[in-house]
Design a protein around this nucleic acid. Structure first.
Lengths: 161, 161
DNA sequence: ACAAATCTTTACTTTTTAATCAAGATTGGG
DNA sequence: CCCAATCTTGATTAAAAAGTAAAGATTTGT
């Protein structure tokens, strides 16, 4: 269970755009340089993010990328969803193998773990916006720590009952 | 952010062992058949789990695998840790690229997200044991749902303040 | 209209992860 | 003691993910 390279770098590119002031934009070359990735790779990521409506791109001289919405309206769960595994998501295949197996075994006990885990991650990510990752209002660590404290309390309640 | 094939199938193999009664054991062939994976693949997974001390193996006729501890003492976070990405964990490399980049940028705002996310996943998994995945005492879904409810409450608290 | 800068899109290559194979080692039974 | 069943381990192959390359399309400025 870990974050993929594409998820991380895509998110980073968005953060770069989120740091810009009004009427500023970044070209692919600039984004690539700032994140230490190749221009081609940045191009692919930004293409995905553009298709999904997170950024808007203008071509030609003086072109570049900007955020399509304000950073405080961009929730990380939506971003991650777009960045994870590309094709697989578009074709809506997902973990078919898993589900078939689960069906085969009646109820295998593992499916709720996997589904629940993904929901928890999604819930956690849906509480963070791009804006929180930028500048001075960076309360991310605090947010996660609070969620963790409550997780622990929940565990105690459940297991103790 | 998703669970890898190795993580899922490794966990499934453990669940198979957890369903056994006293003095029963399963051979590689049996495990492979029950999970619909090849014997070779099952062999690799069980080897990992054996090395990590989750199962014990006996060779020869009448050999096979059993759990090395009782199912209620096996926490999923420990299992997943062993199953994820093999070598990388042993060599303690992790996401070096990420950290270097973060250091380079001072503090990039993304590191706390990644670290926090992994901690939340780990915390959630540490509340589930193998025993909960088996038989009638299957409270997994309930546990995860409670964690989610509390996550939401936490978010409200934090964002509202 | 032309040229330069820039994004877009598809195809390809490399790297990483997953799965398989094959030879070795250990145990139990006859 | 030898054979069959079983786990062990390193090498090999296959599949998936990540990254690269190259040709195309659009815009701006002259």
């Amino acid at each position: 269970m870990k974050i993929s390279a594409q998820e991380e770098y895509g998110l980073r590119c968005l953060v770069q755009l989120a740091t810009l002031h009004d009427n500023e934009s970044l070209t692919l070359s600039q984004i690539a340089e700032r994140e230490g990735i190749s221009v081609a790779n940045a191009g692919k990521l930004m293409w995905l993010l553009n298709k999904a409506g997170f950024v808007s791109a203008t071509r030609g001289t003086k072109g570049g990328y900007t955020l399509a919405r304000t950073a405080s309206e961009v929730y990380l769960n939506e971003v991650i969803k777009i960045l994870e595994a590309d094709e697989i998501n578009n074709h809506c295949e997902g973990y078919k193998g898993v589900l078939e197996m689960c069906i085969h075994n009646g109820d295998c006990g593992i499916r709720p773990v996997i589904v629940g885990l993904h929901q928890i991650v999604n819930e956690a990510l849906s509480n963070i916006t791009l804006a929180q990752l930028v500048g001075e209002e960076r309360k991310v660590t605090e947010t996660f720590q609070q969620i963790q404290r409550l997780e622990k309390r929940a565990a105690k309640q459940i297991l103790g009952s």
